[in-house]
Design a protein around this nucleic acid. Structure first.
Length: 118
DNA sequence: GTCGCGGCCCTTA
DNA sequence: CTAAGGGCCGCGA
């Protein structure tokens, strides 16, 4: 099981204009308790270049990883470019922009991981 | 609704 | 080997 590859794949599947939480990603990876490692993976860019890491926020909707981007406001800007409103506190409204993944999304991912042996 | 604490598990020193 | 800390989370008060 390669947690980081899984995290990258999940991240890649976050729909445009929505955000996901660290815990949500960890869960979809099949590692419910590894939310913190998601942050580490993205921060260290172990996940790869074409990964929309800006769509990942903490469970409160706060852009806790903003400091790890090239410029402090980059994450906010990228999100706003997708139509996601970010307030002055660097927080997004999860009710509105949170990715509500379906059960089928989760199933499909597990299947994908199996096929890819990751 | 808020706040705090303990648990989590990987990485770095 | 131990220890500390991190882009976190859920629960209980």
């Amino acid at each position: 099981m390669d947690f980081y590859k899984r995290a990258a794949e999940v991240c890649r599947r976050i729909p445009w204009g929505t955000v996901a939480t660290y815990g949500q990603i960890a869960l979809l990876c099949g590692f419910p308790k590894n939310a913190r490692q998601v942050g580490f993976a993205l921060g260290r860019r172990l996940s790869g270049p074409d990964i929309p890491a800006h769509r990942v926020v903490n469970s409160k909707g706060y852009l806790s990883g903003a400091a790890s981007f090239d410029t402090p406001d980059l994450q906010k800007l990228l999100l706003e470019k997708e139509g996601v409103r970010v307030d002055a506190e660097r927080t997004v409204d999860l009710k509105r922009y949170g990715w509500k993944n379906s059960f089928e999304d989760a199933l499909e991912l597990q299947y994908f991981f199996d096929r890819q042996r990751i």
